[in-house]
């Protein structure tokens, strides 16, 4: 009696033989104990592989790995969106132009986003409308919430609480006598913003390399 080849048995164990070969293999296995034993070994191996492969590698702390990956994915999406925004806002400006628009030493206003639009930009009407709306929103906000510090780039929740400051020197958190400062990298261009819903954020773009650094400080009550 001619036995099945190892290849045939290996494929049959996973249901991967073509129809006629599969029928032949099935008939053969009924009559041949040796091939049947081989078949059972391949089938068991396949099941064990599938089961073991579903488990995490030993030594992996999934919780911390998951947190790290989720944060990196969020960061990657944010960076991608910023790059898209930069490309869709028109041609790259000349380096001199950027240098003149490099961050000034004074703190930035709330919210501040530096956008390099020229007078001929097709986005100008939209920018004008957006700018007007921003002014109105900021005015309403200032009038509605007098306890909030009026210092540019600064948001204080209540006296004695944590104060978050976004300025060109970096993002700073002050609480009591202590302060934590995220210093900016040596970047030519920076965009700073303070979002009352999400926290403070600084984006730095190195004009020469295109490398982008994002600092984001979130705050909020734990639910």
């Amino acid at each position: 009696m001619k036995h099945l080849t190892q290849t045939q048995i290996a494929l049959h164990a996973g249901g991967d033989l073509p129809l006629f070969e599969s029928l032949y293999a099935r008939l053969h296995l009924r009559r041949c104990a040796r091939c049947r034993q081989q078949f059972a070994a391949f089938a068991a191996l396949r099941a064990e592989t599938a089961e073991t492969a579903q488990e995490l590698p030993p030594g992996v702390d999934w919780q911390s790995l998951e947190m790290e990956m989720r944060a990196n994915i969020r960061l990657g999406l944010t960076a991608g969106a910023i790059v898209d925004q930069a490309f869709s806002s028109g041609p790259d400006p000349e380096p001199e132009e950027l240098e003149t628009k490099a961050p000034e030493p004074e703190p930035a206003h709330i919210p501040v986003r530096r956008l390099n639009w020229s007078l001929s930009s097709p986005w100008l009407p939209g920018a004008a409308v957006l700018g007007s709306l921003t002014v109105v929103v900021v005015l309403v906000w200032l009038l509605s919430y007098p306890p909030i510090s009026h210092a540019p780039g600064r948001y204080a929740q209540a006296p004695g609480s944590t104060v978050m400051t976004a300025q060109n020197a970096g993002l700073e958190l002050r609480h009591g006598g202590g302060a934590l400062t995220l210093l900016p990298p040596a970047a030519e261009h920076a965009s700073l913003s303070v979002d009352l819903g999400a926290g403070a954020r600084a984006e730095y773009v190195d004009v020469e390399t295109g490398q982008m650094t994002i600092h984001q400080v979130f705050y909020g009550d734990d639910e």
């Binding site: 290849t7 290996a10 494929l11 996973g14 070994a41 391949f42 191996l45």
Partner: peptide, 13 residues
């Protein structure tokens, strides 16, 4: 693919 799968299962075993 069938060839790869068969080889892999045989090597694995």
């Amino acid at each position: 693919v069938r060839s790869h799968i068969a080889n892999a299962r045989i090597k694995f075993k």
